[in-house]
Every structure is written in structure tokens, then in C-alpha cells.
């Protein structure tokens, strides 16, 4: 009887010890995983490298990714860099730079914006959101204003 009890006690203690240990591991595992920085390191990007200085000749533009929205970087004919949200304010198509018109153009309904992002022709009701552009060494850095 006492031997049987003794055995039972031991078994219970072993089981209890392992379960407590396992539970602690189960709690610590998500915590440690949580603390490891994820691949995408930032929630909101307030600035991004949109391109390199030599990449864009004057009077040309390119689309870059800004957070999860497209942006448009324009090297104007006069040699300035300008950046805008590339999302058309009409029906959200992606706008592009038209070297022949020297304007920003939306292919969907021929919306046009001038090089300050102002809507000047076609259906877009509002100007494009403009971003600030800074040159850092070779890099063209675009940030929210």
C-alpha cells in the first residue's frame, strides 16, 4: 500500500514537473519569437530611397514603392527632382511621367498633372500628394512632407 502510494507520488511529481516545464516553454516560446525582429523591419516608412542620381536623365520619371503605395519620381527638364504619390486622384490608376508632354499623365482617362502635382486637365479632382526629395550622396531619398 505505502509502496504503491510511493510510486504514485513519484509518477505524479514527474508528470507535474514535466508539464510545468512544458507549459513554461510553451509560454516562453511565443515570447521569444515575438522579440525576434521580423523581416520587414518597419511599420510605416516615412522615407525611402527612390533611386540613384545617375539613373534618371532629366525629363524622365520612374515609379518606386513607397510603403505599400506606388510613388512617382520625376527628374524635371530643368534638372529638379520631384516626387509624388503615383495614385491618380480620379479612380486610383497609376500615373506616369510623359517626357513628350513634360507632364504627369494618367493613362486611364487622360488625367494630367503639372510638375507641381496640380491636376490641370482631365477628370482628376485633386492634386497628387507631393513628397519631399533629398539627395544623400548618390541616393535620392523621398520622404513624406
Amino acid at each position: 500500500m505505502s509502496l504503491w502510494n510511493e510510486q504514485r507520488r513519484k509518477l505524479l511529481n514527474i508528470l507535474l514537473g514535466t508539464s510545468v516545464g512544458a507549459t513554461l516553454v510553451a509560454i516562453l516560446y511565443p515570447i521569444l519569437k515575438f522579440m525576434i525582429p521580423p523581416e520587414v523591419i518597419e511599420a510605416t516608412q516615412t522615407s525611402v530611397v527612390a533611386g540613384r542620381v545617375n539613373e534618371l536623365p532629366p525629363n524622365s520619371g520612374k515609379i518606386f514603392k513607397f510603403g505599400n503605395k506606388p510613388g512617382l519620381l520625376v527628374h524635371t527638364p530643368t534638372g529638379e527632382y520631384k516626387a509624388f504619390s503615383a495614385v491618380c486622384t480620379h479612380l486610383d490608376c497609376i500615373v506616369q511621367y510623359r517626357p513628350d508632354l513634360r507632364l504627369i499623365w494618367c493613362a486611364c482617362h487622360n488625367g494630367q498633372y503639372n510638375l507641381s502635382g496640380k491636376n490641370i486637365a482631365g477628370p482628376p479632382p485633386r492634386p497628387l500628394e507631393e513628397y519631399a526629395v533629398n539627395i544623400r550622396g548618390e541616393e535620392i531619398v523621398v520622404s513624406r512632407m
Partner: peptide, 9 residues
């Protein structure tokens, strides 16, 4: 969305 077990915490 990005952090592992972030939803849980």
C-alpha cells in the same frame, strides 16, 4: 501581421 505571435500578444 508581421511580428511572429504579435496577434497573440
Amino acid at each position: 501581421t508581421e511580428v511572429e505571435f504579435g496577434w497573440l500578444i
